[in-house]
Design a protein around this nucleic acid. Structure first.
Length: 208
DNA sequence: TAAACGATTAGCT
DNA sequence: GCTAATCGTTTAT
């Protein structure tokens, strides 16, 4: 049941200017680090300030969907920088990625959580409506038809830079079993909108 | 054609 | 803190 959890007036847009596609023509970890604090926004629906993203690299990254080559599902990852890559997780969750690197190089950044931004006159929003990758897709009202869409060109979805440049923290990624140790999760520490996804398969490292 | 798995979340203890 | 639910994609036969 796709539920649009936030609903902003059609006329309102977040402050700042939209990122251009060449912002994404870099390595995914650099893009990811710079995306924290930016505003992810869908026209007429809403969005908010990104507080948690993860990078997936084109090589030496077993968790990347393209690690075993190009398939029908991950095809969008090979597209031009700034392309939207959307796929279904666990058959139910719509996960939003933004493609990085040059065309033909499969890299992307997963949008894991954002702090909802209320437009003027709107009541305060629950900070947890987008506190997880599946919740991000749901809050923005996305579905698989968004796969392959280009940011900016299609003005319906964009990332805005309003000059906010927070201190970003780096951690291990969440919810994957391979490539776990790579520090490719970027967060805004202390945000109430961070996901609380459990880490599966991590052996107890606590001393007895 | 069949089986296993997952870039998760919600709900219950 | 732990587990069930849920189904498309991938991989194996």
């Amino acid at each position: 049941m796709p539920v649009v959890a936030i609903g902003a007036p059609r006329s309102w847009r977040p402050p700042g200017s939209p990122l251009r596609p060449d912002f994404f023509d870099r390595s995914a970890d650099q893009v990811a680090a710079d995306l924290v604090g930016k505003i992810l926004w869908r026209d007429g629906v809403g969005g908010g300030r990104l507080v948690e993203v993860e990078a997936y690299l084109p090589s030496d990254d077993p968790a990347c969907h393209a690690a075993r080559g190009r398939t029908r599902r991950n095809d969008a990852m090979f597209g031009r920088p700034g392309t939207v890559y959307v796929y279904l997780s666990y058959g139910i969750h719509v996960l939003l990625n933004l493609v990085c690197e040059s065309e033909g190089v499969p890299a992307a950044v997963l949008m894991r959580a954002f702090e909802p931004l209320a437009s003027p006159g709107e009541p305060r929003l629950d900070p947890r409506v987008a506190a997880g990758p599946g919740l991000v897709g749901r809050a923005l009202g996305l579905d698989l038809s968004w796969n392959g869409v280009r940011l900016g060109c299609e003005a319906r979805l964009g990332v805005f830079d309003d000059g906010f440049a927070p201190a970003v923290e780096t951690t291990e990624r969440i919810g994957i079993s391979m490539g776990r140790s790579l520090p490719l999760r970027f967060i805004l520490p202390g945000s109430r909108s961070l996901s609380r996804a459990p880490r599966r398969g991590i052996p107890a490292g606590r001393p007895s």
